[in-house]
Design a binder for these strands. Structure first.
Lengths: 132, 132
DNA sequence: TGTTAATTGTTATAATATAACATTGTGTAA
DNA sequence: TTACACAATGTTATATTATAACAATTAACA
């Protein structure tokens, strides 16, 4: 079978919603908001999320157990993700910095481990919050 | 009051166990294993874990919801953590690379955000597993 | 068309984590 | 040393996040 090119119904519903809200959102919140579209159970959401993460359409913010749409057209495979997270207003942004990603992709572990994926989460104060 | 210098009873019990197992371990697994020491409820474990993370004695592996003792005597404050995770055997190691930590500490977000903390998780195959 | 894999639907339950409240311990300053 | 503030404890209940198991349906394609 060829690699999947189009999303299934549930996958599309979940992705549409995540892209619409445009900020990290939790699985059960997604569930609550797509029930009118016919998705009734957590598993239906989690299955769609798994697939969407796998194909790089969304990312999981591990420290928040939340999901956000991918902004970088170039990280299709979701293997290299970096986020900034404001500890005050909770704003999360995907970092798109080619130098950083290059540096991390080429990082050589002393133990000789071969990496094919990483996730980096920065915490701090965003511009707005640091003024206050 | 002065800053806490000694750990409380429950904190010490939990830390002792985490240091003993020497690999990432989950909260309920800790609970199960320290019940003989008198810790009976999840909250007792989670409270100790919170404190231990806060003071840098342990770190949380976010992608695994697991906790591991800190190996770097110099990351007392738990503000800069990096781990390598084998996707095959699940082995987790703390990365102690001064170049990497320097690079990340000094990383400047384009949006002008001021970072005071980060967590980085690399995934790949460890030496043993990549031979197989 | 038959076969295989992906997707769906559904119920139940596992695993992770916190709320709320009463009580006890501990450092320190009056 | 008493009294205050705060950290830590103990306990019950519950919230939140995620998966197991199984049956049915749909989609791709040799």
């Amino acid at each position: 079978m060829l690699k999947q090119e189009t999303l299934s119904k549930n996958q599309q519903i979940v992705l549409d919603y995540i892209e619409k809200v445009n900020e990290p959102i939790k699985a059960y919140s997604i569930l609550h908001n797509v029930q009118k579209k016919g998705i009734k159970a957590p598993l239906q959401v989690y299955r769609a999320l798994d697939k969407l993460v796998e194909i790089g359409k969304i990312h999981k913010i591990e420290s928040k157990n939340a999901f956000v749409a991918c902004k970088n057209s170039n990280c299709q495979i979701s293997k290299a993700t970096a986020f900034s997270i404001c500890e005050s207003c909770e704003e999360v942004s995907e970092i798109s910095d080619s130098k950083l990603s290059k540096y991390l992709k080429n990082f050589q572990d002393k133990a000789g481990m071969k990496f094919n994926k990483y996730n980096l989460e920065f915490f701090g104060l965003c511009k707005k919050c640091s003024i206050k």
